[in-house]
Design a protein around this nucleic acid. Structure first.
Length: 887
RNA sequence: AGGCGCGUAGCUCAGUUGGCAGAGCGCUACCUCGACACGGUAGAAGUCGUUGGUUCAAGUCCAAUCGCGCCUACCA
């Protein structure tokens, strides 16, 4: 075989080679040339600790498709890459590795520990980037950023200081979600609520020096040690007598008052609510209103504090058991009922979160959210698919202040200093020399760091050099689209909207495309903490990157989650191999550049495939422009396999082999070259590697396919244009071939048995057309003889098929027994009768005839007519067969 | 508790304005015909979760219902 391509496509070496080539030749680089239309995407920065999972793979593939597509369209594309320092996650990873070496971070101290994290980042931090490259990501790597690098840290400080000065950042003592394992505050979003089968404990609080007392209900009995009141609804008659009374707090020697508050729900539990201001968000509010003390009985480490008296030092859940036991022996545990309720867990380490009182920094979000809300409502930013806008609105409308301080060491340390002398708080870009209030030089920086999402919120402009006024910002902000999963719509997208509008005065992106989440077989989110990930790298090794990319793209229908099936990846791997072999076949015939060739002497298949090419080009363009990735993949898949390969290549084989003369051969070569050339470009955004490899071997293709021009924009295809006649005519030719093949298949006639066929048609155009394309039918249906006549005498021993206005008669004498044909015809007739019955019913309905759109009625009538004719033809032949059988 | 989504061929999933149900894999039969067995040709296979409604016409719109899943939430 003298082909320049191997028989099977081998992705491994090809992918590595081309990626290196692209990178080395600056193919991914954006220019700052303002003349070309700008197209920008900022990557959702993966965690430095990240390991590539299917979620990334999908996310990266879709962005890469858009970027490659826009480059082919002639845009100046900036795909800004980078990674996120991922505060808690990274600190946990490094801490774990230190623990393995027997080192505790507290022994090490903050400075040394942070150094260790930087070391870790240097060693392992590029792992995720290398994996993105394996996916073919065409990011402008020269511009890679990191949320903790110098420039971004400067942006973070600047934003913090400005927001503080504008009164949008404040510090306060509030109840927050506390993870006792990570030893840090968590934002509301960072708490995962899970249904939990617990108990509701009913406890009697005796009236001090009196009889009886209210019974309160709680799911967390250990918190009672921190109770400072029992609240009842002021109008709850059951408790009127208790108003103003003091109660004996069990297991302690404290008394607490009964207070009235309308917050209490009379219908819940006993209608009496124990109030623990330090350990429950609602109780905190009630405590504030009633000026209650708020003793903290559970420490930050999850152990009971001195406030818990004799329970001091007990772990919180051990304390719960002890408290219950003591209450029971005191006879105060009135009732225990099973109770299912939501329990908050840390999203990083899954420890049960404790509401805890502490001093934290907050962003006042209301004002920022209003602007961000307005930007979407007014259409400055469009969320796709649209259904997510509702979620966005709801979140923005009910937004709560954002707790941004974290009690960890890895992250942007808050630029705030406290004067040890006078407690003055100074917020500034740099550490001040002296306290402006008392002139002391003893200033201590706030030990907390900022929530990771604080720096991520600035990503679209901080990566482009803000706060400096850079050419990059001018050129590429606002970015064109943000591509991300819905799981971080609030964490990230909403906050970028708020910060972008605040500091750039413009939305950060025109479009937000929310893609599916890749889930595991149980519909659970794939995440490394759950350990249910399927490694894309394994898939790439086995099937190649292009196969994985094509699969994800084909799966990426809007609005549905993805459950990945390896079988399907295999199917698309086969597609890539099919493309490869189509190219391989083509190269056996194309030896030179046909780019300049004028199309003349086109055969029907030539005209047809050019029409189809143009149509599918339009479809792919539309689909990509509106983020319907699966449609783009599906359309081009069908075109390549079932039109180009199955039909076109088969049709032109005789011409290519020179059996039809030089002119036909040349025109087939021109068209073949053109179709292959354009198809490669259409496919390149989805499967960059195999297309580049084939392109490289295509005679006349200049340079890298990455520098090609998307075919829709190329005028040289337009003169050929759409060709509805060709499509109509080909449809008939293909129908005739299909009909004969069907007879062959159904009758069990061997493919090697050439058939003698007679086609009769009363329609002159049909006869002419079929006569013109006789040879195609001859070849593809494998005939020994084909005669085309107007309606005439019908030979007896034939099998019958109908294609549009053509009656196809296949001579069966000596080939097949007629029982089979009789059975086949009967089957066809029954099927058609079923259809006819439906259509007749429809047409007999006056409502339909009068009210349906005329074209629909006409179409139905036409159809009925066709079916009827077809049935009659079959019926005639059935009779004939029967008479042969009888005779 | 509220909001959202899903239920279509054995499996995994498409189906943009209502107008003859599709793909991939699997399955059946036949086929090594000068690209490809990771292939070719033909075929079987769905009461589109259930019920009711709107309409001449419903997988598609409306209501209810069952079964899943997700997100948001301060009911102890």
């Amino acid at each position: 075989m003298d082909s320049i391509l191997d028989k099977g496509y081998e992705p491994r070496t090809v992918e590595e080679r081309w990626y290196a080539y692209w990178e080395a030749n600056g193919m991914f680089a954006a220019s700052e040339d303002p003349k070309k239309p700008a197209y920008a995407i900022v990557i959702p920065p993966p965690n430095v600790t990240g390991v590539l999972h299917m979620g990334h793979s999908l996310n990266i593939t879709l962005q890469d498709i858009l970027c490659r597509y826009r480059r082919l369209c002639g845009d100046n594309v900036l795909w800004m890459p980078g990674t996120d320092h991922a505060g808690i996650a990274t600190q946990n990873v490094v801490e774990r590795s230190l623990t393995a070496q027997g080192v505790d971070r507290h022994q090490l101290g903050r400075e040394k520990f942070v150094e260790k994290v930087w070391e870790w980042r240097k060693t392992y931090g590029s792992a995720i980037i290398n994996q993105l490259k394996k996916l073919g990501a065409s990011c402008d790597w020269e511009r890679e950023r990191f949320t903790m690098d110098e420039g971004l840290s400067r942006a973070v400080k600047k934003v913090f200081v400005q927001l503080y000065e504008q009164g949008l950042i404040y510090r306060g003592n509030y109840i927050i979600n506390w993870c006792p394992r990570c030893m840090t505050a968590l934002a509301d979003l960072e708490v995962e609520h899970e249904a939990h089968d617990g108990n509701l404990y009913h406890i009697l609080y005796p009236v001090a020096g009196g009889e009886g007392g209210p019974v309160v209900a709680t799911t967390r009995p250990e918190t009672m040690l921190g109770d400072t009141a029992v609240a009842v609804h002021p109008e709850d008659e059951r408790y009127t007598a208790l108003h103003g009374k003091q109660l004996m707090l069990p297991l302690t020697n404290r008394t607490i008052p009964v207070i009235c508050d309308t917050y209490v729900d009379r219908k819940f539990g006993t209608g009496a609510l124990k109030v623990t201001p330090a350990h429950d968000p609602n109780d905190f509010e009630i405590g504030r209103i009633h000026s209650l003390a708020s003793p903290k009985v559970i420490g930050d480490d999850g152990l009971m504090t001195g406030e818990a008296g004799k329970y001091k030092g007990l772990e919180r859940f051990a304390c719960r058991a002890a408290v219950l036991k003591d209450l029971e022996s005191a006879g105060l545990l009135v009732k225990v009922e099973p109770y299912n309720h939501g329990v908050g867990h840390c999203y990083r380490c899954h420890t049960v979160v404790e509401p805890n009182l502490s001093k934290q920094w907050f962003v006042k979000t209301k004002l920022l959210a209003e602007k961000a809300l307005e930007a979407v409502k007014s259409g400055q930013t469009k969320i796709i698919p649209e259904k997510w806008t509702g979620d966005y609105y709801q979140w923005m409308e009910n937004i709560r202040d954002w707790c941004i301080s974290r009690q960890i060491w890895w992250g942007h340390q808050i630029p705030a200093w406290t004067c040890a002398q006078c407690n003055e708080i100074i917020v500034a870009l740099e550490m001040p020399d002296r306290c402006p209030a008392c002139n002391s030089d003893h200033l201590i920086q706030d030990p907390d760091v900022l929530d990771t999402w604080f720096s991520s919120a600035l990503w679209p402009f901080s990566t482009m050099g803000w706060p400096d006024d850079t050419p990059l910002l001018k050129q590429f902000y606002p970015t064109s689209v943000l591509v991300t999963g819905f799981d971080i719509l609030f964490f990230w997208v909403a906050r970028m909207m708020m910060m972008g509008l605040r500091f750039m005065d413009q939305v950060p992106f025109h479009d937000v495309y929310i893609h599916a989440l890749v889930r595991d077989e149980n519909g659970k989110k794939m995440s490394k903490s759950t350990g249910n990930v399927i490694d894309p790298i394994d898939i790439i090794k086995k099937y190649g990157t292009d196969a994985l990319r094509f699969t994800l793209t084909a799966f990426a229908a809007q609005g549905r989650d993805i459950k990945l099936s390896e079988k399907r990846i295999e199917g698309y791997r086969n597609f890539i191999n099919k493309l490869w072999n189509a190219a391989r076949f083509s190269f056996m015939h194309i030896q030179r550049d046909h780019s300049a060739a004028a199309f003349s002497d086109l055969s029907l298949p030539d005209r047809w495939i050019l029409d189809r090419l143009k149509t599918v080009t339009g479809q792919v363009t539309d689909a990509l422009d509106s983020y319907r990735f699966n449609d783009a993949a599906g359309d081009v898949y069908h075109f390549v396999w079932h039109e180009f390969c199955d039909w076109y290549l088969e049709f032109i084989k005789p011409a290519l082999y020179g059996n039809k003369g030089d002119d036909q051969q040349q025109s087939a070569k021109h068209v073949l070259w053109r179709v292959l050339h354009d198809t490669l470009i259409l496919l390149h955004p989805i499967i960059p590697f195999v297309t580049e490899e084939i392109w490289d071997k295509l005679p006349g293709a200049q340079g890298s396919i990455m520098r090609a021009t998307f075919p829709f924009l190329e005028a040289r295809l337009f003169p050929i244009g759409f060709d509805p006649d060709a499509v109509e005519q080909m449809t008939l030719v293909m129908a005739v071939i299909n009909a004969i093949r069907n007879i062959r298949g159904e009758m069990g006639i061997s493919p090697s048995q050439a058939l003698k066929v007679l086609i009769q048609s009363g329609d002159e155009k049909t006869r002419h057309l079929l006569a013109q394309n006789k040879e195609f039918i001859y070849n593809l249906a494998r005939l020994s003889d084909l005669t085309i006549t107007s309606a005439g005498e019908k030979p007896k021993a034939t099998a019958t098929a109908v294609a549009d206005q053509a009656l196809i008669l296949v001579y069966l004498e000596g080939i097949i027994d007629f029982d089979k044909e009789a059975a086949r015809l009967l089957k066809e007739i029954v099927k058609i009768n079923g259809e006819l019955e439906k259509l007749d019913k429809k047409l007999a309905n006056p409502g339909f005839v009068n009210q349906a759109k005329p074209e629909v009625v006409d179409k139905t009538k036409e159809q009925r007519q066709e079916y009827a004719e077809k049935r009659d033809k079959f019926a005639v032949n059935l009779e004939k067969i029967k008479s042969i059988q009888a005779g």
